[in-house]
């Protein structure tokens, strides 16, 4: 059973559509971060993507995905960590994102992103940000779409 150390750091419910949401000035008092997102896409096609410290370089990832009919697995070098295939829809999706050792300056950062929408597609990506800088901000980006009003985003700190 998990140790009850979810400490709420930030939370946002969108009152209007937005292209991205950023958690900044993240406390360095924890070991890992957990993000819980229930984005609603403005169109029936969208991708949830993750960036650290505003950086758009040095991301790589491997993912697995399913759309209810077919399965896929890819590796990427990208400008963010994401899933590939319509994981946001006009109905709410659920994403759970773990960012490990986010403040360590002796490690590249790793993140596990999993989730999707029951309406279209789901999957999981494990990503690496090849940077030893401590993570002080996380941006959740809507690609090929925007986040609609009512989308929710929450950030937690996990103590070791």
């Amino acid at each position: 059973m998990p140790t009850p150390t979810y400490t709420p750091l930030a939370n946002l419910t969108l009152g209007s559509s937005a292209a991205s949401v950023t958690f900044s000035s993240i406390s360095q008092a924890y070991r890992d971060l957990v993000l819980v997102a229930t984005p609603i896409s403005t169109i029936n096609d969208g991708y949830l993507a993750l960036q650290f410290n505003g950086s758009s370089s040095n991301y790589s990832m491997v993912n697995m995905e399913g759309n209810g009919t077919s399965t896929y697995s890819y590796t990427y070098s990208q400008i963010w960590v994401t899933l590939n295939n319509q994981n946001m829809w006009t109905t709410p999706s659920t994403f759970l994102i773990n960012v490990m050792d986010y403040k360590q300056t002796d490690k590249h950062k790793t993140a596990l992103l999993k989730g999707g929408t029951a309406s279209q597609s789901l999957g999981a990506s494990v990503g690496r940000w090849a940077d030893t800088t401590a993570i002080t901000s996380v941006t959740l980006q809507a690609t090929s779409a925007t986040f609609a009003a009512g989308s929710t985003f929450a950030l937690y700190g996990i103590a070791a």
Binding site: P4, P8, A10, N11, L12, T22, F23, S24, A154, L155
Partner: peptide, 14 residues
């Protein structure tokens, strides 16, 4: 069964 309570504020949009 666990409940998890979100925080408030602390995020920006663009």
């Amino acid at each position: 069964l666990y409940t998890i309570l979100k925080g408030s504020g602390g995020a920006s949009v663009s």
